[in-house]
Design a protein around this nucleic acid. Structure first.
Length: 665
RNA sequence: UGCGGGGUGGAGCAGCGGUAGCUCGUUGGGCUCAUAACCCAAAGGCCGGAAGUUCGAAUCUUCCCCCCGCAACCA
């Protein structure tokens, strides 16, 4: 493990804004968030970017289906998806969109640069167009009768009945799946990316990536061995205009959606730099050979990230207007972490067939933490995994609640009731030292798993440590000692509290505190619940100081009074208020309000052309360090409340019923 | 069809030449501060199928079956 801060780019697959996303879509994304949070806690400089993929045919089809314009449709789904991701606590430094002005500028720069350097080839090929619109009709959107088996609903790329691969012009009576019209087949002109030009470089590079998962590496090498030019423009009126004379103004030609989508990793980094007021800051990640780039995506996207995107990066180098011809060539992926498929009760989730669970639907009834927990413990990390409600309830109740939630709860309940504060450590026994050493060792062992993107193993190890502390508590029985040997009971609870304090950083949960009453999830939006007036009133001393600092133009100046141990505070009040100032307010200041898992928020961005869009971002620098925490004796404890909810087994039947109802519609 | 990955007790996985192990669940017992943790015991697998190599195979070879991905106009 490097002791010096490293720059880590966490690049997460761009969800398509053609509908709400279901659990299968986010199955691999929780791990990217864990990875980013881990590296931040390690002290590394993390840039985590993604956004919604909004160009291309599926957006148009979604819009037509709902009677919306393409822009309205992608606005709608961008909002839904970003709201889901905020709720799931994905700590993006920037979650943006592919319809921003910035994205268009960067994409066109990459295209133009590849063109100028001779990596694009103009070719004419037979394509299918939709009669009414002149838009490209992808093979899978053409249906007809299979010429081999006579199946009447064969698709243009493949017959679902006999499994044979087809070309769309082979179909008998071909029709558009969109409007039923007969497709027009004609020769159309397109630009192709000259992938074979990069074959040798790619082969050498991938061969050296011995740390990749074998299937990713082998699969990529196999793919590279037989590269052909790949089209990067299409006949469509929704997408990034082709930045070449004679093409830029054509309404019927746009860049192909996959081409612009992968560039999103880069364009989002550029947008992030602008947003934080350091327009050149993206170079620290993209042009520093010491920086490392980690890509998270589904298994079906591997070649885009190991072959096609690297080809584009190699071709671009540092030549374009955005990179400005200076610095190192843009960095290639360091690792590509792919996720398999999350099936739903045995079959593949499909939006069109109504099979699967939407994220927002799920979160309307369950908390995000159990979902994140489940998807790591039982998700499709290396092979397909199956989501069943029965399994979800079991993992939640038996692992998350029983092992970890109960450990935190029993430790805090015991310490709070008998001591009210963190008891002094006393003289540790061999058992005390053993359990502390084991738990503190978790930072190394769990960390190693996370570095290697072995998330399931990391979580399993964290749970093993929690079980270890459970065993330590059961054996030590501090609840029997607090009257006869109070010092010893205090020592045991001190050890257990420190273990819990460490483990709350290690486990892959999102938001664990020590019992702050309000605001809590579920209460924050309740109009009938408010903080008690004295609570917010006394905080006024602090908030007014912050306000003053902002007013005088030195927003950090309040720290000189509030965080300098040498400063002295004098309070003046009526006699009826003494207890608030000598007891309650000091308790609040001592209380454990530290943020363990900072959360993302929406922010509106305005671009030079006046357009605006909302992005997900956040200040994640306040997270604790990835190291044993120093829990001082004497720190006040508040009345604990359970961290996670136990689920009633009846939810299994309820959810199965709900799915059947929807499937029947 | 070609290429790649995978098929191990009810679920999820590890093992990859020495005769099968982990987590959870299940059954019985102990204990109980706690959102029933922890301890003890037990049931449950011919390691997808077949043939072969070997003193010995879940582990190596060959063939076959099943699942998933890719096969370049799904992204």
């Amino acid at each position: 493990m490097a002791g010096t801060p490293a720059r880590i780019l966490v690049a997460v697959a761009w969800p398509y804004a053609s509908g709400p996303r279901h659990l299968g879509h986010v199955a691999g994304m929780g791990t990217s968030d864990i990875f980013a949070r881990y590296h931040r806690m390690k002290g590394n400089d993390v840039l985590m970017v993604s956004g919604t993929d909004e160009n291309g045919t599926p957006s148009l089809i979604a819009a037509d289906r709902e009677g919306l314009t393409p822009k309205q449709a992608v606005d709608k789904y961008n909002r839904i998806i970003a709201t889901d991701f905020r709720a799931l606590g994905f700590s993006y430094d920037l979650f943006t969109r592919t319809t921003t002005r910035n994205h268009v500028v960067v994409v066109q720069d990459v295209f133009k640069t590849l063109y100028d350097k001779g990596y694009l080839i103009k070719k004419t090929a037979l394509g299918a167009l939709q009669a009414a619109t002149g838009r490209t009709l992808p093979d899978r959107y053409i249906e007809g009768t299979c010429p081999i088996c006579g199946y009447t609903d064969a698709r243009g790329d493949q017959c679902d009945n006999c499994g044979n691969q087809l070309d769309p012009d082979q179909l008998i009576d071909p029709r558009s799946r969109i409007d039923g019209s007969k497709p027009i087949f004609k020769e159309t002109e397109h630009y192709y990316l000259d992938l074979p030009a990069f074959k040798q470089q790619l082969t050498d590079w991938v061969t050296r990536q011995t740390h990749w998962r074998p299937n990713v590496r082998n699969f990529s090498l196999n793919f590279i061995a037989d590269l052909k030019p790949r089209p990067i423009t299409r006949d469509i009126d929704w997408g990034v205009p082709v930045p070449l004379p004679g093409w830029i103004d054509r309404p019927d030609k746009r860049l192909y959606v996959w081409f612009d989508a992968v560039i999103g990793y880069f364009s989002a980094s550029v947008e992030w730099a602008t947003m934080v007021g350091q327009p050149e800051a993206w170079r620290d990640w993209w042009q520093d050979p010491a920086s490392r780039h980690f890509y998270f995506m589904g298994a079906d996207n591997i070649v885009f990230h190991t072959t096609i995107w690297p080809s584009m990066l190699l071709g671009y180098g540092n030549s374009g207007a955005v990179a400005g011809g200076r610095g190192e060539p843009l960095q290639l992926p360091s690792n590509v972490v792919s996720t398999a498929i999350l099936t739903m009760s045995g079959s593949r989730q499909s939006t069109s067939r109504g099979h699967g669970i939407y994220v927002n639907d799920f979160l309307s009834r369950y908390d995000p933490d159990p979902l994140r927990f489940y998807l790591v413990l039982n998700g499709p990390e290396t092979a397909d995994a199956d989501f069943t409600w029965e399994d979800f309830v079991r993992r939640n109740n038996d692992d998350l609640v029983a092992t970890w939630g109960n450990l935190a709860n029993r430790t805090l309940v015991n310490a709070y009731r008998r001591f009210g504060a963190v008891p002094p450590p006393g003289t540790p026994t061999a058992e005390d030292r053993a359990v502390l050493t084991a738990v503190e060792g978790g930072f190394a062992t769990v960390g190693e798993h996370l570095e290697g993107a072995r998330f399931r193993a990391a979580l399993t190890e964290a749970l093993r440590l929690a079980a270890l502390v459970n065993g330590y508590l059961t054996t030590s029985e501090p609840w029997k000692l607090h009257e006869t040997a109070r010092d010893r009971a205090g020592t045991i609870l001190n050890v257990a509290l420190r273990c819990v304090d460490d483990l709350k950083v290690i486990p892959i949960t999102r938001d664990i505190d020590w019992g702050v009453p309000v605001p809590l999830p579920g209460w924050i939006d309740r109009p009938d619940k408010r903080l008690y007036v004295w609570f917010d009133a006394v905080i006024g001393y602090f908030s007014a100081s912050v306000e003053w600092a902002t007013m005088v133009g030195q927003p950090e100046a309040w720290r000189d009074w509030w965080q300098d141990p040498a400063s002295r505070h004098f309070y003046f009040m009526g006699a009826d208020n003494i207890v608030f100032h000598t007891t309650i307010w000091p308790s609040m200041l001592l209380g454990y309000d530290g943020v363990i898992a900072p959360q993302p928020e929406f922010r509106t961005r305005r671009e030079p052309d006046g357009s605006t869009h909302d992005v997900l971002t956040g200040d994640y620098g306040v997270a604790p360090a990835w190291a044993p925490t120093a829990l001082p004796a004497g720190r006040k404890l508040r009345e604990p409340h359970p961290l996670f909810k136990k689920l009633d087994p009846s939810v299994v039947d309820q959810e199965v019923e709900r799915m059947e109802e929807r499937g029947a519609k």
